[in-house]
């Protein structure tokens, strides 16, 4: 029997970074913490490697690299290489036994979601940080489409920047420590992010929640002016800024599209008080579990009521500007000077 390469999230935890990539390992860890995440499974790095070996794509890439090794140093050539390698990957068919297994997991996922037909997100899950955006496909429907998108995510590991990075680090070109997450899409009423630190000034006494109607991508991309709620961790006191939200991202037949927010929703807060409390409660718990400020993505489902409609799709350590040492020292100096008069 061949090596296991598909995992339900509940089988994973943060020890599985190298096996399934950070995103999947985190989703597993989040499941273990009792956070509600959309049901789904992970495609491990072994799955990628098996695909590359069985289809011969790995050999084709190696061959291409051997033939072009000298020229690959130029950026222009790297752009071309990206195109060629992605094509090599994406033009392969998934081996039949792998397809079978993916179908089996997908069908069970439908059962778990208690639905005949479900839409899933197929997301890349890198094990080491690789520069360049790897693809994420939303609103994928049907088992054939899922198989196709998994291959496309693998292909997306070969962006120009990622190729340049491999050359710089002397990494084998066909290697891509990349996992894939396949998870049920939540019918998003609203979605957004929560940070357990004010990133601009590194104030860890506050939590900031940002959200918009529809899918969370509009908030993550920073294209719109989301609602913002700044919550004081100790007192629970909230500062609300409700902005006019004219655009949102919604599903269309396959994939997503930008749509207008209905007039009556534009100036309404997209998270009610109870939902906000629940988001903050979970975020605080996760932060104290990991002992470091978190950057998390949440989704509120159309159906169901709080807290059952709250799903989490991401939790990772927050990047924030630590109070700059120089600034601290400057302030200390100003305070010292104050005593001289």
């Amino acid at each position: 029997m061949s090596k296991k390469w598909l995992y339900w999230f509940e089988e994973l935890n943060s020890g599985h970074y190298e096996l399934v990539g950070k995103k999947c390992a985190n989703l597993g860890e989040m499941t273990g913490l009792g956070m509600r995440i959309p049901p789904g499974f992970a495609v491990s790095v072994d799955g990628y490697e098996r695909f590359m070996a069985e289809t011969g794509a790995g050999e084709l890439i190696r061959q291409f690299v051997r033939e072009n090794s000298d020229e690959l140093k130029s950026v222009k050539k790297q752009m071309e290489a990206s195109r060629v390698i992605r094509k090599i990957v994406e033009s392969q068919e998934m081996p039949p036994d792998m397809t079978e297994e993916l179908y089996r997991y997908y069908d069970e996922l439908k059962q778990r979601a208690a639905a005949d037909e479900i839409a899933v997100a197929v997301r890349s899950s890198g094990a080491v940080s690789m520069p360049g955006q790897m693809e994420t496909y939303l609103n994928v429907r049907g088992r054939e489409a899922v198989v196709r998108k998994v291959i496309e995510v693998w292909g997306s590991a070969f962006t120009t920047r990622a190729i340049a990075f491999r050359i710089e680090k002397g990494m084998a070109m066909e290697k891509a420590p990349i996992g894939v997450a396949v998870l049920k899409m939540v019918e998003a009423k609203s979605a957004g992010v929560v940070l357990t630190v004010l990133p601009t000034i590194g104030d860890t006494s506050k939590i900031v929640v940002e959200g918009n109607w529809g899918l969370g991508e509009s908030v993550v991309s920073g294209d719109i002016n989301p609602d913002q709620f700044i919550v004081d961790k100790q007192s629970g006191c909230v500062e609300c800024t409700v902005n006019r939200k004219t655009k949102m991202i919604v599903y269309k037949d396959s994939g997503t599209a930008t749509a207008d927010v209905p007039e009556d929703l534009q100036s309404r807060r997209c998270v009610d008080e109870e939902e906000l409390k629940e988001i903050v409660r979970i975020a605080t718990e996760v932060e104290s579990y990991f002992q470091c400020p978190q950057d998390m993505e949440w989704v509120l489902d159309h159906s169901g009521s709080c807290p059952h409609n709250l799903y989490w799709v991401q939790a990772r350590p927050a990047k924030f500007s630590k109070p700059m040492e120089k600034e601290s020292e400057y302030l200390a100096e100003l305070m010292t000077r104050m005593f001289k008069c």
Binding site: S328, E329, A332, E333, T336
Partner: peptide, 25 residues
Amino acid sequence: EKKARETEFRKAILPFIEDYDGLWG
């Protein structure tokens, strides 16, 4: 003595600037 204390103070005040909430909490 003031001079000597200034040097110490510059270091001693840093926890207030860097992590006030952690200190008080």
